[in-house]
Design a protein around this nucleic acid. Sequence first.
DNA 1: ATTTCTGCAAATGCTTTGCATTGCA
DNA 2: TGCAATGCAAAGCATTTGCAGAAAT
Lengths: 153, 153
Amino acid sequence: MQTIEELLRSKKIKVTPQRMAVYAVLKQTKEHPNVEMIYKKLKPDYPAISLATVYKTVDMLKRIGLIQELNVGDGSLRFDANAQPHAHIYCKGCGKVTDIDNFSFAQLQNQQTWEDIAAETGFQVSAVQLYFYGLCSHCRRKNSPADTAPDTQ
Amino acid sequence: MQTIEELLRSKKIKVTPQRMAVYAVLKQTKEHPNVEMIYKKLKPDYPAISLATVYKTVDMLKRIGLIQELNVGDGSLRFDANAQPHAHIYCKGCGKVTDIDNFSFAQLQNQQTWEDIAAETGFQVSAVQLYFYGLCSHCRRKNSPADTAPDTQ
DNA sequence: ATTTCTGCAAATGCTTTGCATTGCA
DNA sequence: TGCAATGCAAAGCATTTGCAGAAAT
């Protein structure tokens, strides 16, 4: 068991207050923030921090496997300090991203499944992402007048 | 059984050569092109076509449910004329997107699963996307020297 | 004739890059 | 001290928007 600082140093990555702060924001939230959201949370305590630093930091944290990147399709990248594969659901109304903890990922990560995919497609599989789309309870109330159009996520 | 033209007219959407051409490109390919790729395919036959028209057309086709949009995380939106839910795999090496037809989507679309998600999260589910990530057979050969870094998709 | 669409150019929004300065090791 | 990271501003892309002219109904 090592601290994040030790992990970074072991990889010859310098420990800076900005990096620790970005990771702390991700660790404390379940809202799967994008870079802009992380930046706004940090601004009061780190008035000089820049968006570029936040971008570079999330890239680094992703590269070393401490966080995962989500592509829900809202035009920005969102980040999750829980790097374990798990399903997410995106609200088409307000953009909220929520974890789905009870969905079993077993079949999706199973070696046999990956081998079957390799047999069908020739790809060597290394990761999975599962996204559900819908309306959160709040947006469901507001948008109730039926949506007849086919779902566009 | 109606033609695409009839479907559009029934929705009071005008039938134009550009729209038919964009749909024809998607219908003929399995490469899940983005707007730029569709535009380049059309340019020789439709020298005056604009990217904006392609963007507007794919939005329209998605809205009426004739195509689906994919977010594999390559910084562009990709489109598939097969609007039925099915899994996709993205090559981290060359960006190729391939269908996975043999993967059973049953559990992902099952009413009970969606109700369980609603019970856990409060969301009313309306769609799913499943993306696998890996290396295609071609890139696997080239990139063979092991990749030790954690997977970043 | 009316309404909608096209194509162009400008604008927007997210992300990346180059570089001088700063700060960790 | 030496190398890497920060912060700033500019640049880069993908996508959207406004609008005048063109085309579909």
